[in-house]
């Protein structure tokens, strides 16, 4: 076997083995991203803090200094207040954090996206949120007892139109 025929055969075999190895590693070995007998709980929503708490009425002097077409009685800060979120699992607080508004001017909604791995089985979930700085306690609260299956993806969302927290 000489010349190019030899290169075609030997080089071809080497290339074949290389590509077979590449093909094998393109789907193996497997990766376990979630421990066995575990479920994933995600608390995720976007919600803008209520700006009305920081609003005030303009004084007569302030109104007089404005052009007639801009004399709105109330003035509100463009920046939204932060929200405070708390999550309890089986009576223990697993997440409690204040979330600032998004955007350069702080005028966007606050964002929450938290992942929590829980053992499969029954759990008592309580989630609370305060979106007004002048509220004592919380503006929204919801409790749910759930039975989580292994590898289940459970989501707590927040939809004001549906009355508050939503469990998926």
């Amino acid at each position: 076997m000489k010349g190019r025929a030899r290169h075609l055969i030997l080089g071809g075999l080497v290339t074949l083995v290389l590509i077979a190895v590449v093909a094998w590693f393109s789907a193996a070995p497997q990766w376990r991203s979630l421990p066995e007998q575990t479920a994933l709980l995600r608390l995720s929503f976007t919600h803008g803090g209520d700006r009305s708490a920081a609003c005030r009425d303009r004084t007569e002097e302030e109104l007089a200094a404005l052009p007639k077409n801009m004399r709105a009685r109330q003035i509100c800060d463009r920046r939204r207040p932060p929200i405070f979120v708390e999550l309890e699992v089986d009576g223990a607080t697993v997440f409690a954090a204040e979330r600032d508004p998004s955007g350069l001017a702080g005028s966007g909604p606050s964002r929450v996206y938290e992942r929590l791995l829980l053992p499969a089985g029954p759990h008592d979930l309580t989630v609370r949120m305060r979106d007004r700085p002048d509220t004592e306690g919380f503006d929204y609260e919801a409790t749910r007892r759930v039975e989580l299956a292994p590898a289940q993806s459970f989501v707590i969302d927040f939809r004001p139109a549906e009355g508050g927290f939503v469990f998926h």
């Binding site: 789907a27 070995p29 497997q30 376990r32 991203s33 590898a151 993806s153």
Partner: peptide, 9 residues
């Protein structure tokens, strides 16, 4: 609704 716990990477 589930988490792909084991995947062939």
């Amino acid at each position: 609704a589930t988490v792909p716990a084991v995947v062939g990477l």
